[in-house]
Design a protein around this nucleic acid. Sequence first.
DNA 1: TCATTCATGACGAACGTCCC
DNA 2: GGGACGTTCGTCATGAATGA
Length: 318
Amino acid sequence: MRNLDMDLLRSLVALADHGTLKGAAERVGRTQAALSLQMRKLESQAGEALFRKDSRKLVLTEGGDVLLSYARRILALNDDAVQALTRSRVSGDVKFGSSQDFGESWMPTVLAQFRKAHPEVGVEIRVDGGTKLVNAVDAGEIDLALALGLGERANAICIGHLPLVWIAHRDFGWNKREPLPLALFTSPCRFRTKAIAELDAAGVRWNIGLTSPSLYGVWAAVNAGLGVTVRTPEGLLPELEVVDRKFGLPNLGSVDVSLYLAKGARSPAVMNLVELLRERLAQRIVELDARTPNGVIARRPGRFGVVVGRKRAPAIAA
DNA sequence: TCATTCATGACGAACGTCCC
DNA sequence: GGGACGTTCGTCATGAATGA
């Protein structure tokens, strides 16, 4: 009886989900060439062709579809088993703070996964601005915070980078003879400062259409077509789009995504959550990369994506 | 023509096995 | 135990095919 390699099945699922070797390779932390070799090995193990070429992409054959269905179940069972083995060993409480950018998007799913894996761990959640959360970490009010664009600090673990992009409603039109209306956070805000500086440097006239102290207010204004805002693509509503290229707006570069740990907060419960966040964010960045209109993330030069080593994504040092 | 994607060859690192 | 060797699997560089 032949055995199917679990790593190869994981790559198969990534390839089926992503549609291209290149994208799938980034997701699993390998090169495109390595993934190509893996899929050939999997075909050898399966004893039949799993893919056929459709122009420049690879699509599953009938056999590939059958194996994919089994692969998802095998991997789910594997992950359940791993979770079951670690479940009983971790207990305690975690006070966790998340930036508003993540609070409503993928964070609920991640926390549900953590809860399922560690039902004995009590989790207290706080959603707020990044600066406030990091201050709370420093004051020992919370154990851990996930925040954007606050740079390197002694207690920070940088787990990736996201591009800063211009975002507007799909129907939003801008007459370039008029100032660009902006919907931004109330000052002080790093993204706001950066956006205004870049517009000024590029000679683009602008005015403040709306300011809000909360992300919900900013999204609501942009969704209503009141102006353009500056965020990462995380939490992008379906009606909104990245308009860097559409309006020829200046490149805003990228922001770091970091976890901030309170002094003495490295309990097993906290470090398990750190590891889960690191892993899920890596996947999330790749998803955002694939979904961002116009390929803004993939095409723009600079530091994006997950922080990985030359060969494999390393574990974050505890 | 250029950008994107996949395939392939060359090479190197890690690991297992064998033999002394 | 440790060195030699073979195997496996990774990266990098490059070419071919394809689409805009």
